[in-house]
Deep mutational scan, measured.
Amino acid sequence: MATGGRRGAAAAPLLVAVAALLLGAAGHLYPGEVCPGMDIRNNLTRLHELENCSVIEGHLQILLMFKTRPEDFRDLSFPKLIMITDYLLLFRVYGLESLKDLFPNLTVIRGSRLFFNYALVIFEMVHLKELGLYNLMNITRGSVRIEKNNELCYLATIDWSRILDSVEDNYIVLNKDDNEECGDICPGTAKGKTNCPATVINGQFVERCWTHSHCQKVCPTICKSHGCTAEGLCCHSECLGNCSQPDDPTKCVACRNFYLDGRCVETCPPPYYHFQDWRCVNFSFCQDLHHKCKNSRRQGCHQYVIHNNKCIPECPSGYTMNSSNLLCTPCLGPCPKVCHLLEGEKTIDSVTSAQELRGCTVINGSLIINIRGGNNLAAELEANLGLIEEISGYLKIRRSYALVSLSFFRKLRLIRGETLEIGNYSFYALDNQNLRQLWDWSKHNLTITQGKLFFHYNPKLCLSEIHKMEEVSGTKGRQERNDIALKTNGDQASCENELLKFSYIRTSFDKI
């Protein structure tokens, strides 16, 4: 039985969820670079991206490699990797027998973001014989899940209580170790020597080791999670996991709180800001991140802002960003909400898709409305799209047979046209069989910064309504002859009103 693990408890099935942008060198404390989270699957090609990484700022997932063999891993080693800020997950990587050479110096898994409450997941690794993470000293947050690894031993010899604050939620089941077939031998045991430290858990006094050649490092209890030197002297209180010299914040392997210019500090002093819960960055760093993602459509890219001495992905609820200094300031009234469309555009074809934009005031991208039916549609669209004030790209209304009016965009005031449909149009209306009105132009103002209007096959939309939009939106004169079809717009509506004058002759039985 794995020490510190839980057996036999019912657990939810383990679901495996399925960018080499360097964020800056980590400095003297770390020998390499800070790398983003990685999802490495199918083959070993991307694994080489770990070569210079000291910190993975995010998670590391290595999974679904069915053609790899043990010899493929023999020359692979990433000794610079010290810390993973989120979680480490391995799933069905064939041929991998140990992690001792792959990650010989991995010391800390912070667990800032977890995989279903777990910071370390080893699942269905069919050839893994031992973990071998002999320098792993601290899992700051989260638990361990090690399950269905039929060859995995050296679990009962690990004292997880020396690595985690609590072992109650560890789930370590259905491994070879369960069948008591392992016969784990710690260093020196074969020669009758006791080389590794022994600890007591559940009444068992057991030597602690990761492999037959690597003991588990056990520091004096007084050192807590700070770690200790090879001689057993406690590291500085700002260290986490390990250090090369005692009581020196510049000799830590990793930091308990924050890293700044080669030393570990309790908090980031001005003019620095907390970033990702582990390091200090200056304003320029946060500003660069903001600008890199301002026009990016890459998933996970955030326009970072500053709030409460932190550089964070977005302002919290009730705050909006001051564009001059990136500071989050309290909103006066309802907060603006910028919604970034991942692929640059979004099609609204149902109430469900409209709900995804609920509360958005600025759309960074283009909207395509293609709704053919739905219950209580006008009210639903207004509830979900009615706060949109600005669209950076274009607005396209296409084959939306259920629409009679666009009044559900009740606050839309600006279409920038930074991206144009077919390279020309910022407003595009095609084949809307029941569209009769755009907006009530006596109450609604709309500016279209650039781009043209396109109207074709809107049989109940009168040309007068379209011409009014040209005047109000500032697009009059931009359109070419064929942009607004004269014969297919309003051709099934009563669009022309003329005053009919009647004269009559009164007659009676005795007068003409």
Rank of each mutant, 00 (worst) to 15 (best):
P79I: 03
K217N: 11
N135S: 09
V200N: 13
D101T: 08
R41F: 14
Y87V: 00
E33I: 09
V218W: 05
P270A: 09
N282D: 08
N43W: 11
H127S: 15
C186I: 04
P79Q: 10
G95A: 13
H212C: 03
R92S: 10
E51K: 00
N242S: 12
W278V: 05
M137V: 12
K129P: 00
I82L: 10
N52S: 07
T194R: 09
H226Q: 05
H307V: 08
L60D: 00
R110K: 13
T320K: 04
V108W: 09
C186N: 02
T229S: 09
I82Y: 13
E181H: 03
E49D: 12
D86W: 02
I82H: 07
P334V: 08
S323E: 13
P36H: 04
I158T: 10
H226K: 11
N150L: 09
G203T: 13
K191I: 14
S323I: 13
E57K: 02
Y171P: 05
R113A: 03
S77V: 04
L89T: 05
N117S: 09
T320G: 13
K129T: 13
M83S: 06
P220F: 13
D86P: 00
S166T: 04
T320M: 12
T211M: 02
L63Q: 15
E124A: 08
R110T: 07
R46E: 11
D184M: 15
M125P: 00
D165S: 11
L131S: 02
L29N: 10
Q276S: 10
V55P: 00
R297S: 12
L164K: 14
N179G: 14
A254V: 04
D248H: 06
T194P: 14
Y94V: 09
C280L: 00
V265A: 09
T320I: 13
A156P: 07
T320N: 11
P220H: 07
V34R: 14
M65T: 05
H302D: 08
C228A: 02
G318P: 06
V305W: 07
C182Q: 05
D159K: 05
E231F: 15
L164I: 07
D169M: 15
I84S: 00
N282M: 11
V34G: 03
H214R: 05
R69H: 15
D177A: 10
P334M: 12
P269M: 04
V121Q: 01
D178L: 12
N105L: 02
E238I: 02
V206T: 12
D248S: 07
I122C: 09
P249T: 09
H59S: 09
C335S: 05
A230F: 15
N117D: 04
M65R: 02
P197H: 10
S98V: 01
I84A: 00
A198S: 12
R46T: 01
F116W: 14
P336S: 11
Q303W: 03
S77W: 07
I312F: 00
L164N: 06
A198W: 12
N52T: 12
E71P: 11
R297N: 12
K217G: 03
L233H: 14
E180K: 10
N195V: 10
Y87I: 01
S323T: 11
L327N: 11
C243Y: 00
C182F: 12
P187E: 13
D277I: 03
L81H: 00
H212M: 00
R256W: 03
T199A: 13
T211A: 05
R69E: 10
T85S: 10
N170F: 11
T320C: 12
Q216R: 03
E71H: 02
Q299L: 09
M125Q: 06
K224Y: 07
Y134W: 14
G333S: 15
D261R: 07
K67A: 04
Y273S: 05
E124P: 00
C239I: 00
K191D: 15
F285K: 03
C53I: 04
P70K: 08
R46Y: 09
N295S: 09
N309R: 08
N150I: 12
F91R: 02
V108L: 10
K80Q: 07
C223L: 02
C280V: 00
I201V: 08
D165G: 11
F91V: 03
L233M: 14
E124G: 04
L133K: 00
E151A: 08
L106N: 04
G227I: 04
N325V: 06
Q287E: 04
R263G: 02
N242G: 06
L131Q: 01
N52V: 02
G241W: 02
G300L: 11
V218D: 06
K100E: 12
R74T: 11
W210T: 05
P197C: 11
N175A: 14
R110E: 04
I172F: 03
R69T: 05
Y87L: 00
N282V: 03
C153P: 00
S284H: 05
H28Q: 06
V34S: 02
M83Y: 07
H212Q: 13
H59V: 13
D165H: 05
L131F: 04
H59Q: 09
M125C: 01
P31S: 05
R297H: 15
D178V: 10
G95W: 04
N175D: 05
T329K: 10
H48S: 08
V93K: 00
C315W: 00
N43T: 06
S112K: 09
L60F: 02
C328F: 01
C215E: 10
E71L: 11
F78S: 02
H236I: 02
